[in-house]
């Protein structure tokens, strides 16, 4: 059962019919046994009625304004949000949370799926550099990526193997 404090926090939403049926049932059950909460609820209802009755007679505002309205032609309709609307949209919590989530995802994706990231294992690095060298060597244009396995068994001695040099480049000095 929800505690007394949590029920009190729900009283306002209960008054506005903003609770789901289960929450309403819990609040109503508590109100039937708790005098303090029932009193608070009664006060909320009474204050609502008082404020709702706070209506004043209205001076002839429309007549006064109408007499001051200048003639004008059609105004330019704005099809894009105003700065104020953009500001309110950007600074709403949901937009901030979405932006933070997207930023985190992009950072994680960049770290883990970066194709230029060198393999951490030295042997992997060597094989990667060697494979790239063999596959993309312009002197070996007949070699395709599919045939690399076969090609590796019979290395072409006519092409200069500068894997060591490329390895140094990959390692960044």
């Amino acid at each position: 059962m929800m505690n007394h404090r949590r029920i009190q926090n729900q009283l306002s939403a209960y008054l506005d019919s903003e609770l789901n049926p289960e929450e309403r049932a819990v609040v109503e059950a508590h109100l039937s046994i708790c005098d303090a909460c029932a009193q608070m609820m009664g006060d909320f209802q009474q204050n609502r009625q008082w404020i709702a009755a706070l209506e004043h007679e209205v001076p002839p505002i429309a007549d006064r304004v109408l007499a001051q309205l200048p003639d004008r032609g059609p105004v330019r309709r704005q099809f894009f949000p105003s700065f104020d609307e953009l500001r309110r949209w950007v600074f709403r919590p949901s937009t901030g949370a979405a932006a933070a989530a997207v930023t985190v995802c992009l950072i994680v994706a960049f770290i883990y799926f970066n194709p230029t990231r060198p393999p951490e294992d030295a042997l992997d690095l060597y094989l990667t550099v060697h494979t790239e060298h063999v596959a993309y060597n312009p002197l070996r244009s007949n070699v395709t990526a599919d045939s690399l396995g076969e090609d590796m068994k019979t290395p072409d001695t006519t092409a200069e193997d500068n894997t060591d040099f490329l390895l140094e480049v990959h390692l960044g000095d």
């Binding site: 706070l54 209506e55 004043h56 209205v58 001076p59 505002i61 429309a62 304004v65 109408l66 309205l69 003639d71 004008r72 032609g73 059609p74 105004v75 309709r77």
Partner: peptide
Amino acid sequence: CQDGDKQAMDALMRQYQHWVYN
């Protein structure tokens, strides 16, 4: 109102002046 019709503005004002004022 956007087209410059004062009568429409008058109608809008009479609809809302009560609540705007209150």
